[in-house]
Design a protein around this nucleic acid. Sequence first.
DNA 1: GTTTTATCTGAACATATGTTCAGATAGCAT
DNA 2: ATGCTATCTGAACATATGTTCAGATAAAAC
Lengths: 175, 175
Amino acid sequence: MRLFAKQGYAAVSMRQIAAGVGVQAGALYNYTPDKQSLLFGLMQGHMQDLLTARAARDRPEDPLAQLEDFTRFHIAFHMERADAVFVSYMELRNLDDENFATIESLRRRYEDELEQILRQGVSTGVFSVPDTKIATLALIAMLTGVNTWYRTGGRLSVKEVEAIYWDMVRKAVAP
Amino acid sequence: MRLFAKQGYAAVSMRQIAAGVGVQAGALYNYTPDKQSLLFGLMQGHMQDLLTARAARDRPEDPLAQLEDFTRFHIAFHMERADAVFVSYMELRNLDDENFATIESLRRRYEDELEQILRQGVSTGVFSVPDTKIATLALIAMLTGVNTWYRTGGRLSVKEVEAIYWDMVRKAVAP
DNA sequence: GTTTTATCTGAACATATGTTCAGATAGCAT
DNA sequence: ATGCTATCTGAACATATGTTCAGATAAAAC
């Protein structure tokens, strides 16, 4: 995973991967039918971890608290899995059509939860956004953007980053 | 550029590029010393186009109008150059250290303009953000995210997308 | 102690890669 | 017509790739 993140799927050879786990290239084929399945497995595992971790949290009542929970969850989860996030966003084009569709549907399931929170908040007047679908994608893009600059051991803790982004998210969807 | 965007730098061969412009692979070496320089040239050209186009606009007076101008400019520019944007964000890791530093400094120059707008607005009280540097990166990530979903010929025009994002940007940095 | 099972090695395979270069081709000036 | 310049071809190069597979290794089962 670290290798894929640093060099990209296409640029990493099976021999490098094998060396990374201390084995010869041929031995990998006891665990994966081919290289593409390896990538797909990593990405699918990541997306399922995401959905599982998300489902494990108990949802607050009102939309505002739900949005805050989602925001903080998304940031914390993504910050501590930089490599997996990077690969899952960058290597989609290296999946064949079927695998791509699978990953996309997992991603959409995650996005749909945020959109539902926004819709509910809009219907009760606690939020106001021009378009819930686009707002969903905009917020996720903004939150995931934390991975482009955050480095563990920097000047800000996870909680502080959460607070900073939550302030902007809250206001962005405010009436 | 279209090839790099669709398949990724490492997955595109010089023979494919050559076929794309209707020559043999060897002929490419009359124009580029190697493959890496080709990628670097594309990315550098894109970043310079971005800075040039940005500099060509005359800046409004107050920070709020400047932020709106920046937002609309960023969206419009990025929407109509999806391939170049994609490559410039995805293929950074394929640049060697020197080329990477060059592209990064161009990108930072662009980001710095947004940060200055935010700082000025914060100092005059028209904006309020928890951290101007992070707000800069968050807003750019959010705006650039439009490339993940927008397809030309969709249900929304460029102007409509601009308006939707501007609404969220404006509120996100509001006091 | 022998057989079975699972795993790994190391070499081989066909193919693809980035790059080089001698020579073909063609447009232009003289 | 001749020479000059720029460009392109097509083959060759060394090397790297994903994948396969016969046989080595060793632990588990009997």
